[in-house]
Design a protein around this nucleic acid. Structure first.
Lengths: 139, 139
DNA sequence: GCATTACTTAGCTCATCGGTTAAATAACCT
DNA sequence: AGGTTATTTAACCGATGAGCTAAGTAATGC
């Protein structure tokens, strides 16, 4: 049974070595040798980690002579972020106070611009019209 | 060796049953029995999953008579989101427009009186004025 | 007290994971 | 061709993880 993509991605992220590799790659594309340097670990171990990251869709790999440069692949990160979005209201104050924010945005927009009803906020579409806050017994 | 919190959290999220449990809890606090219902799985299995989620800081559990109601705990979600933030520029358009944002902040500072053009959205600063897309040479 | 309900703990199995070393592949450079 | 550099594959090992059944704990209610 092939595990679903989100599970593979989270599993890949659950290892500190792999997260460190990703952090290094956030600085820019680089080779396996270069990636291996900081770790007290055999090269095959790193190679395996990279395979896991690639299979999880978190990196992609090119070919340049004898090097296989690695770089961040955005899609899986985005999926994780999307999934997390379902829970954002539990900790993100501005999400919790959506009405206030959206109301304000609406007012502003009405004052100056074409009356769109959605707008991109960190690449997530958000209704600009008022959304009622349901009474939750949390916190 | 105790695994670092972020690793435990990602590991906990790497299981579809546990993510489904969290999705259910996003609808509101509930009992173990209730949580177990949708799954074709023994109760001890669910109990273990809950233990993993609790240890990962993703849920907390109370006591009410013979029930142990579970609810979402925000902190670990927030940590994951924070970690993910280091990579947001790889897929998030408004994060990619960092220069524009920083330029604007600088201008704002120079103008000393705050005609604020940024605002916090999801706890991240985001331009509210129109966004222009610069050609970035990534992917 | 004793049965019922709600859960957890113990002990087992089997698969997967992170690491190892040794050998294989691939592309470059005389 | 033969050597060097970069990286992967193969085969193995010990630890962890997800599932099970059976038994244990805890509070409710007759």
């Amino acid at each position: 049974m092939p595990p679903d993509p989100l599970s593979s991605t989270f599993a890949a992220l659950a290892d500190p070595t792999r997260r460190a590799i990703l952090a290094r790659l956030a600085l820019g594309e680089t080779s396996v040798m270069e990636l291996a340097k900081p770790f007290d670990m055999s090269l095959p171990a790193i190679s395996k980690h990279l395979k896991v990251l690639e299979h999880a869709g978190l990196i992609s790999r090119g070919r340049e002579a004898q090097w296989r440069p690695c770089r961040i692949a955005p899609a899986s990160f985005q999926q994780v972020d999307g999934w997390l979005g379902n829970f954002r209201r539990f900790w993100d104050e501005s999400f919790n106070r959506l009405d206030g924010l959206l109301e304000e945005m609406k007012a502003e927009e009405a004052a100056e611009a074409p009356p769109r009803t959605t707008r991109k906020v960190n690449n997530r579409k958000v209704r600009v019209t008022k959304e009622k806050q349901r009474g939750r017994t949390r916190g």
